[in-house]
Amino acid sequence: MQLDNASDRDNASELGSVPDLGSVPGPGPATNPEPLLQTIELTKRYEDGVLALDRLSLEVAPGQIYAMLGGNGAGKTTTLNLFLGFIEPTSGEALIDGIATHVDPLRAKERIAYVSENVALYPQFTALQNLDFFVRLGGRKSLDREQLSTALDRVGLQREAHNKRLKGFSKGMRQKCALAIAILKDAPAILLDEPTSGLDPKAGMEFTHLLGELRDEGKAILMSTHDIFRAKQIANRVGIMDRGRLVAERERHELAGEDLEALYVRYMAGPSEEVACLA
């Protein structure tokens, strides 16, 4: 992990201010310093030799949202895949509540909920049927229909849509269903892969608001995103990734005087451009 906080702080005057959060609840102080999600020198090199992740170390404590920013191939999704146990790390480890995902993936996965970029549920099932299946699959057996409906109400899915098949749902509606599944699973940690990608502004705002609520309930949330605006709006900490490396990391209070977009563009431009910019 290579950070350049000092030089970034020197350029703080160039950066803009934090946008108005409106009704979105802002991040509060972390109450538990023990990280629920953690990577330690996590490295992944694929069979074809591509180094997808290079000694990544990050931590997400309960009640925190960590936003991973980065372009395509930065290693964001690889990080999530390692947390989900879909791939094995080359070295280092991804820990969920102290459990290494490559050592005991099933026990680790009991503690996470996952929402993907293109929410995929069964199109011929209704919203409630999808919810029922995935929540049971997540280990919650005793939820009745009303509890499922309440969760859908909470994420803002209209009642008349609860018994409709998902094949007619917009991406925003499917995203709400996925978030309802994550809520009902009641896992202490949530992984989100580009959750606001493709959502209209209203749906994006609603989604961000719900994330804020979940964070305030003490969930540890790790999200990968391209959406700098949302990241700055909701995250307690932002990490910028490039070619598998975490090249910059900022606490929320550090972003107050920084233009995150400029910072992102600067780091994404690569080391030579960064030097030129600093000069």
Binding site: L84, F86, L106, R107, K109, E110, I112, A113, Y114, S116, N118, V119, A120, L121, Y122, P123, F134, L137, G138, G139, A178, I181, K185, L191
Partner: peptide
């Protein structure tokens, strides 16, 4: 292809 496999196996399902 639909993505349901990722979602399903993100749970503690052997």
């Amino acid at each position: 292809e639909r993505g349901t496999l990722r979602l399903a196996l993100s749970n503690a399902v052997p």
